[in-house]
């Protein structure tokens, strides 16, 4: 069934299902189910939240209490010295700044490229559209592998430049398909009307389509930003100088370096001097921005992923 009136469509989606009194709602089985549901989900919350709270508590605790395993939900031997220590480390802040720059740049590039590609793919009249989709989807299943990628990027002279981390994989195919589905769900009449009023293709995209796509854009920004903030592998592969590393590489080296000092026969195993509370502080500071931003984008996020999920 094809609905042509956008307002009608919106109404139908917004209207909550009429409350129907069925025997199912009140049945004993359903009430038991709800209780079990709540209990299980509370368990899931505890399991996912506890490690996080524990790390936060550790970051405010003194080393001795962490080492003897006495820190659980609340800090023991409260101190802020570790925060001061980490905050005074120029290497940490340099890495942090790198992460911010890489994340902003990479997200901007990804959003522009993904939007352009997705908008084109949403037009069914486009010749060769299936081929373009095929090219994108192909990369979901096959890729060149690590060494060819490395040879390519270094052959293009991008190693040790920001381009090595912001250009490869700039378009995530999953995000591309979500966006394409969203654009397809926009009524074609809107764009036809805009065209009659004299807008060209770019005008339609910029002035009509994008303003209507804030939800999906916010979702995409969130997806890309989180992925870029957390990514470390590309930076690790393509950067040869420590002043270029993002904070994730710094953190990873700190954590993995301290716990795997025991490579076979590692005779001079002096790689253990980093204390547990420094690790905890670094982790907290690293995840903080994402945790803070999440609640603000969340309302777009929930509606955003659902967009394009149902096609009429």
């Amino acid at each position: 069934m094809v609905t042509t009136d956008p307002t009608q469509l919106m109404e139908r989606l917004d209207k909550p299902a009429a409350p129907r009194r069925t025997s199912l709602d009140d049945s004993r089985g359903y009430r038991i189910f709800r209780v079990v549901n709540v209990v299980v989900l509370l368990g899931v919350v505890a399991v996912t939240l506890y490690p996080f709270v524990n790390i936060v508590a550790q970051s405010f605790s003194s080393e001795l209490y962490i080492r003897t395993g006495q820190v659980n939900l609340f800090p023991r031997g409260f101190n802020l010295d570790t925060y001061k220590l980490v905050a005074a480390d120029p290497v940490f802040w340099n890495s942090y700044l790198n992460t911010v720059i890489y994340t902003v740049t990479a997200t901007a590039i990804s959003i522009v490229l993904t939007t352009i590609y997705a908008y084109v793919l949403s037009k069914h009249r486009l010749k060769g559209r299936n081929l373009l989709i095929g090219i994108a989807v192909f990369t979901m299943f096959f890729n060149g592998g690590l060494i060819p990628n490395y040879v390519l990027v270094s052959g293009l002279g991008m190693t040790n430049t920001i381009w090595a981390v912001v250009l490869p994989n700039a378009i995530s195919v999953f995000n591309l398909l979500v966006m394409k589905a969203f654009f397809e769900s926009l009524p074609a009449e809107l764009e036809e009307a805009a065209a009659i009023d004299g807008l060209n293709t770019y005008g339609i995209l910029l002035k009509i389509v994008l303003p209507l796509s804030k939800a999906v854009l916010a979702t995409m920004i969130l997806f890309y930003a989180v992925a870029n903030w957390n990514s470390w592998f590309q930076a690790f592969i393509y950067f040869d100088r420590s002043e270029l590393f993002p904070v994730t590489v710094y953190l990873r080296n700190m954590i993995a370096g301290a716990s795997s000092a025991t490579a076979v026969g590692a005779v001079e195993s002096n790689a253990l001097a980093i204390s547990a509370n420094i690790k905890a502080v670094t982790m907290v500071l690293t995840v903080l921005p994402i945790v803070v931003v999440y609640p603000f984008i969340q309302r777009y996020f929930v509606s955003g992923v659902m967009l394009g999920a149902v096609k009429q």
Partner: peptide
């Protein structure tokens, strides 16, 4: 400069 954590991988690469 290669971080300790993944030295072997980068060396191989």
């Amino acid at each position: 400069v290669v971080p300790y954590s993944d030295y072997d991988q980068k060396r191989g690469l």
